[in-house]
Amino acid sequence: MEGRILEHPILSFTRQKRVRIFFEGNEIEAYEGESVAAALHAAGIKVLRYTPINGRPAGFFCAVGKCSSCLMEIDGVPNVRSCMTKVRDGMQVRRQHGKGDLV
């Protein structure tokens, strides 16, 4: 099951403004207020990076900014916690391979 919950017995979700974010250059659906990791998950993307030593696929674990498992390259900056970063119109998101370059 992917995508967004439209009807819920307890909660009502009102989506904010639609924004365009790009994952590996391809546009995916996102709404203001969502984290990058959440928008990617809704689009069926669970692999957020490949680990530095063994090149293993990794996604988020805690989704609340504690575990640092969801680091991605966002607008050219590596090691950004995608679970704590809100989507912005025009954002370029890439899977991080390895540790990321300092400059």
Partner: peptide
Amino acid sequence: GAGAIQTLMNQYGIF
């Protein structure tokens, strides 16, 4: 983690 699933589902409304 359990909290991650709740964040996706109950905060962002994502399956």
